[in-house]
Nucleic acid binder design. Sequence first.
DNA 1: CCACGGATTAACT
DNA 2: GTTAATCCGTGGC
Length: 200
Amino acid sequence: MTKLPLTFYTRPDVVQIARELIGKYLFTRIDGVLTGGMIVETEAYCGENDLACHSHSGRRTARTEIMFHEGGVAYTYLIYGIYNLFNIITNVADKADAVLIRAIEPTEGIPEMLLRRKLDSPGYKLTSGPGLVTMALGITTKHYGTNLTGNLIWLEDKQQNIPDEQIIASPRVGVAYAGADALLPWRFRVKGSKWTSKAK
DNA sequence: CCACGGATTAACT
DNA sequence: GTTAATCCGTGGC
């Protein structure tokens, strides 16, 4: 296995990184159980001049503090009082760029994921949405700031080659409040994959 | 201290 | 396709 190194995360172009993360693998070993799969959907959020980003233009609060850390750590937070969302911080310190993981194709630890999701059989409902991925992988707000080059949550490059024409770029989900920035084509998906989220 | 709203989801019709 | 659940945590005061 090839764990993605710190240098993968500290590069400056978060949109490029979000695109490259398609086809990479996300794993967690939480409570000693390995779970994970191939990333099939991401979104990029840029600290500078992106109104959809929690940390836009230096908006530094207790919640967003970790976004200003150097790339390679986890930004987790609670949405709608119910769901945990998992982001990867990128770029050098103080840039506050992040990639939201929206969907994976499960490959490891499927029985454990079924338990966590309270499902009977594997299918797209297992991990096809940002709140579902975290539930299946056991990621919660407790993992805020987790180092992604460690052995709790990490990413691997398994040399899966997803050609450019298999990747769809489109506007991000749920960020209508961001005005013109809502139109940026910063959501990436694997074309034809049944494992992506169903959001428009 | 406390009013407010959200990088969503599932269960409806 | 439409809508309610669901509430904690955030952040402004």
